[in-house]
């Protein structure tokens, strides 16, 4: 019994050590929301998830992958595209959000329709405007593919390919997309300093924006109505479509402000193509408390640019798995 307990303890310690080496973040980040005990991170599962993320095999006609709308160079969003793209040149209903720091989130999609990271990828896979696939067909395609048979074996110890394993592997890769190396982060760690303009912008940011875009994740993870008029073509009412609560009409998830340079256009429908347009909206008559001068606007933007994480977007571990996918 004692031997068994010792072995269990040893296994637990090893697991914690492995997890820490695969998933680490600064001390000033809050506690994660994702329950790693139900999906222990491993190198082989992350690698499998990366492969699935970049492989168009997920779509019905093998033309669209997750990366199609979530490119690493765009902090896993789709820069310069207002709405997401799908199979047969179909256009989706929303602007593809960037993907990073997902372990801290407990709801997904702009309206919070999805309650767990593991279940999120079901939406694009089955949406007729995105990958348009059926789950049966997805598994059929994967089971026929020798590369995946081998990779599932390496990741799980046997070559069974099922949806649970597919979803959890994609989650594993997505969980490792951590943006934590911006100038702001270095500033927090005392490794860099802000210019006078950035400090002025930071102070203005704290006064006017930090209620919703709370540091250090730059979101409060809530749904807010920021007084956007409803798009008359898309008729997207946001969180209201999920809760049917009139208070939620035109409420959308507060996005993180990290990596803004790589993730334009902005808002749920990509209606603003640059940060000046965004700040003009917030300085408008609907926001009585915020009235920014041109200089203040530039100062705030200068601070926001310190949230860009170039190291994150260039991280080779996050990129297209050339050796495996093109072999």
């Amino acid at each position: 019994m004692k031997v068994f307990l010792k072995l269990a303890l040893f296994y637990g310690i090893i697991n914690v050590f492995i997890e820490e080496s695969l998933f680490n973040y600064p001390e000033y980040f809050p506690k994660t929301k994702y329950d790693f005990s139900k999906n222990n991170l491993s190198k082989t599962k992350i690698e499998l998830g990366r492969m699935l993320f970049y492989d168009p095999i997920l779509s019905i006609d093998s033309t669209i992958s997750c990366e199609s709308c979530h490119s690493p160079y765009n902090a896993f969003s789709h820069t310069d595209h207002r709405l997401s793209h799908g199979i047969n040149d179909k256009i989706g209903k929303r602007n593809a959000p960037p993907l990073f720091n997902l372990a801290w989130k407990s709801s997904f999609m702009r309206d919070g329709a999805v309650n767990h990271l593991d279940m999120q990828s079901l939406v694009p896979i089955t949406d007729s405007l995105e990958m348009g696939n059926s789950l049966d067909n997805l598994l059929y395609k994967l089971k026929k593919n020798q590369k995946y048979i081998t990779m599932f074996y390496e990741a799980f110890g046997d070559s069974t390919i099922n949806l649970d394993r597919v979803l959890k592997s994609i989650s594993q890769f997505e969980l490792t997309l951590i943006s934590k190396n911006s100038k702001y982060d270095r500033f927090r760690l005392g490794e860099d300093h802000f210019s006078d303009q950035e400090i002025r912008g930071y102070e203005l940011f704290k006064k006017n924006c930090s209620n919703c875009h709370k540091e250090p994740m730059f979101t409060n993870y809530k749904f807010e109505n920021n007084f956007l008029d409803i798009n008359q073509v898309l008729l997207d009412s946001g969180r209201f479509s999920i809760t049917k609560n009139s208070d939620d009409f035109m409420s959308f998830e507060v996005p993180s402000l990290r990596n803004l340079s790589y993730t334009y256009p902005y808002m749920h429908d990509g209606r603003f193509s640059n940060l000046f347009e965004v700040l003009k909206h917030y300085s408008g008559p609907k926001f009585n408390s915020v009235s920014l001068t041109e200089k203040e606007t530039i100062d705030i933007i200068s601070f926001l640019l310190t949230l860009n994480d170039k190291e994150f977007i260039l991280n080779p571990e996050n990129k297209f798995p050339v050796n495996k996918l093109l072999k």
Binding site: N39, V114, S171
Partner: peptide, 19 residues
């Protein structure tokens, strides 16, 4: 999240678009 078995979304008893 993902639970597998009888609870596998492949059974057609899961709303993907609204968890």
């Amino acid at each position: 999240g993902s639970l597998g078995g009888a609870l596998d979304p492949i059974e057609g008893m899961y709303w993907a678009w609204q968890s």
